[in-house]
Design a protein around this nucleic acid. Structure first.
Lengths: 109, 109
DNA sequence: TACCCATACCTCGACTATCTACACCTTGCG
DNA sequence: CGCAAGGTGTAGATAGTCGAGGTATGGGTA
């Protein structure tokens, strides 16, 4: 298997929002889930993750609550706000538009 | 239709290489072609284009030659080198891997 | 007891790609 | 003549990510 390749710049917010759209998770779990769902291709570094989470929180797209994690420790659980849900839709549309456009060129004759 | 959306970070090199894979072009034409092929979605700013071209040339992936353009003016025509062609393959594979991984997450349940 | 490892949070500095905004030159056209 | 379109380029700012570090807790093991 190839090793993880980190990220495509600008897609981290989308990935986090999407990951939180099913249920609230803490930072560590978000990173694990992205890596797992992507088939071990995408890897979220902690130095990218936490600034991104704070960014999203400040935008009002996610909110945090301290809760007990599966392992019995305190952890910050993030969940989507209403604004976050509509932001997710926007970013999804934007990603599809842009990646589609790139594919038009890449897969062209 | 929506206005052009600039770029996805990290894909410009790929787009340029791909655009040059069919025939030699000058910078201005590369930008036009990317915009056109993408259905007016992607837009390459001049301040991104020229530094990128110089970067690629320095890497030895493309080479430049002054020639006369379609409009009768001197213009720098860039063409792929052998190394550039294999770089294009690498970047294409990398894009497909990464964008595929993102789609796995975005399109999930 | 002592120690390490996995979990979980965070920050800081460096890097790099891109954008915005310029500057410059040429050709064609009204 | 002046202006638009074609064509090349640079400088500065910005933003997102990476790499490397730091803190702390709980569980397991030697």
């Amino acid at each position: 298997m190839g090793k993880p390749s980190d990220l495509v710049q600008g897609t981290l917010d989308l990935l986090i929002l999407k990951t939180l759209s099913t249920e609230a998770r803490h930072g560590w779990a978000i990173a694990k889930r992205i890596q797992q769902l992507s088939g071990e291709v995408l890897q979220v570094q902690q130095g990218s993750l936490y600034p991104a989470l704070h960014r999203l929180e400040q935008q009002g797209w996610i909110k945090a609550k301290w809760m007990e994690s599966e392992t019995g420790r305190q952890a910050k659980f993030y969940s989507l706000t209403t604004a976050g849900r509509s932001q997710l839709e926007k970013e999804t549309a934007s990603w599809e538009r842009l990646s589609g456009a790139i594919n038009l060129i890449v897969q062209e004759g």
